[in-house]
């Protein structure tokens, strides 16, 4: 199910402004890849190009090549809607649909592709997705209550369940724990460990310990200078990145000496 992502020569723009310059990287399937870097260095922007969410912002576009196994994500005939059902996303702020129940939230995406899903199949999918997100035991007695009644950490796991219910091959996570307390963060990190059995996971994080804990490979982004576009500085095995980075910039960032 998990797929490899191959990016080559990707430039990302907001209108005339070049936000991220010339990124090439390979993201391995069944692994966790972390993007780190200071605020505004373009790592979230780059993440959003991987499922073509970047272009939802008016005037925003990307140039270059992104391959999802052999699917050319930016190919001329490729429907972004199809890409997004292959590449799921979890956002910084948990965003369950406020008017929907927990059950309906989980099933919402799956219903888009399969409108005539039988009741029992839907029930199975909801249970499976919630179990997969380590949330089933906490919500199984109130599946038809609003999702907005859950705690922040539970809401974020609900969003992960909602994303996996669509059966994507890749999960993108944009600072999924930055609004959560340490206990909830731990729950999500445990979940990420389990999910990488089945998915390709890419996570943007500001928390270096988190990157070190959850990821197999780490990519470090930085700005070329004030007002200049962000670039990929270095990418490698997480262990190596945090102990023996090749570039001075990476070492400065990781050890807390910026610039």
């Amino acid at each position: 199910m998990a797929k490899r992502i191959d990016v080559s020569g990707l430039h990302v723009y907001y209108g005339d402004f070049l936000a991220v310059e010339d990124v090439s990287m390979t993201i391995e399937p069944r692994s966790v890849t972390a993007f780190i870097g200071s605020s505004g260095c373009g790592k979230s922007t780059f993440l959003r190009t991987l499922n073509r969410m970047h272009e939802v912002t008016p005037g925003a576009y990307a140039r270059g090549k992104v391959l999802l196994d052999d699917l050319d994500v930016y190919g001329p005939d490729v429907d972004p809607v199809l890409v997004r059902s292959e590449v799921g996303m979890v956002f910084q702020r948990a965003n369950p649909f406020p008017t929907m129940s927990i059950y309906d939230n989980v099933i919402a995406g799956a219903r888009l592709n399969n409108k005539r899903m039988s009741r029992s199949r839907a029930d199975d999918l909801v249970e499976e997705s919630l179990r997969g997100a380590n949330l089933w035991e906490e919500v199984k007695d109130r599946l038809h209550k609003p999702g907005s009644g859950l705690s922040g950490g539970q809401q974020q796991r609900l969003c992960i369940a909602r994303a996996t219910a669509v059966r994507p091959s890749v999960l993108l996570m944009d600072e999924p724990c930055s609004a959560l307390d340490p206990i909830s963060t731990l729950a999500i990190e445990d979940l990420i460990h389990q999910l990488k059995e089945d998915y390709t996971i890419v996570i943007v994080t500001h928390n270096m310990q988190q990157a070190a804990r959850v990821s197999d490979r780490t990519a470090f982004f930085n700005l070329a200078g004030p007002g200049k576009p962000g670039r990929l500085i270095e990418m490698g095995e997480t262990n190596q990145m945090f102990t023996r980075p090749e570039k001075k910039e990476t070492e400065n960032y990781i050890t807390g000496r910026f610039g």
Binding site: N51, M53, V56, V81, L82, R84, S85, E86, G88, M89, F91, R93, N95, P96, F97, P98, T99, M100, A108, G109, L112, N113, C159, R162, A163, V166
Partner: peptide
Amino acid sequence: PQGHREAALAMGATRWEMIRLAVLPF
């Protein structure tokens, strides 16, 4: 909220489906 609209789009909703899931209920 942008978060609701992007949540719908990110799971493979078309624009109309995004409106049905996120905009009309809100």
